[in-house]
């Protein structure tokens, strides 16, 4: 590991209250959940900060439950929990599908949905799902809570509206009507960072969200509008091309990402258009 430990400090709250107080008094602190991202940075000698807040012990943030028509997911719910959760499988199968494709099981056992949101990588696999599901991020500080629609959460590349004294404590997902669809395209079949990732909901007002094609995860609202108004997927594909701005990087090319994004849109439309009501999400 290329980061010396002695300059680092870890705060270890026993409760959410403690954690929020520490954030208020000692901040800014880097929150630590499953550490699957932060320790990669530490290993490379690029620590994201020197003062960290350990959230892992806060079991109160691990719950997944249904309240009325809303699916409440605690920020510390791991991908393994999400993939196995009956309410998630029933209400948000595209999230269960995304969780199963993140890393290997070791990462699924540690990585959390709150961590995925907080890290805010444009390639975060669960993020298009949350965007397409019109989820709400619950932020809390020592003074109280606020709810931010997921689609207004990010302000730029790895930047969000979260204030330094706030924690992501949960994500709330309203009922999703329509057929859900998810597809991740990585560099290999397992344990890969996405080159393009898409989640879609087929309903009267279809929803389409993508990752790895812009500085943040995006909802393709113009594409959605074309689909809703005309159902013409070729036209929607043209609209999508105006909404994404992929780049060349170590993993892929802008040209490839554009074509694949367009192809996935058509695949989503074809897969969800048939009368067959079985879930199109493959295991």
């Amino acid at each position: 590991m290329r980061t010396p430990l002695s300059p680092l400090r870890l705060f270890e709250p026993r409760s959410l209250r403690d954690a929020l107080r520490l954030l208020a008094d000692e901040g800014p602190l880097v929150p630590l959940a499953g550490c699957t991202d932060v320790y990669v940075s530490l290993n490379a000698g690029a620590p994201p900060g020197t003062r960290f807040l350990n959230l892992w012990a806060l079991d109160e943030l691990r719950r997944i439950e249904v309240r009325g028509s809303t699916l409440m997911i605690g920020a510390l719910a791991t991908y393994t929990q999400l993939a196995r959760s009956k309410p998630v499988q029933a209400r948000l199968p595209m999230l269960a599908a995304a969780a199963r494709e993140i890393g290997g099981i070791q990462i699924q056992n540690r990585g959390t949905i709150g961590g995925n949101i907080g890290t805010g990588s444009p390639a975060g696999d669960s993020l298009p799902v949350l965007a397409a599901a019109a989820a709400v991020v619950v932020l809390q500080n020592a003074r109280g809570r606020r709810q931010v629609p997921f689609n207004r959460f990010y302000t730029g590349y790895r930047a969000s509206v979260r204030r330094p004294d706030e924690l992501i404590v949960a994500v709330e997902v309203p009922a999703v009507d329509g057929r859900q669809w998810f597809r991740k395209v990585g560099t290999r079949a397992a344990q890969a960072i996405s080159k393009v990732v898409m989640a879609g909901v087929r309903a009267d007002r279809p929803r389409v969200a993508l990752g790895s094609v812009a500085p943040t995860v995006i909802r393709a609202t113009r594409t959605e509008a074309v689909l809703a108004e005309t159902g013409d997927v070729a036209e929607a594909r043209r609209a999508l091309m105006t909404e994404i701005a992929p780049i060349d990087d170590l993993r892929s090319t802008a040209a490839y990402r554009r074509r694949v994004a367009g192809n996935l849109l058509e695949r989503f439309w074809a897969d969800t258009g048939i009368a067959d009501r079985r879930s199109p999400i493959a295991d």
Binding site: L10, C35, N43, N54, W56
Partner: peptide
């Protein structure tokens, strides 16, 4: 879990 990504504090 991969023990290279786990702080012992956890």
């Amino acid at each position: 879990v991969t023990s290279c990504l786990v702080p012992v504090g956890q």
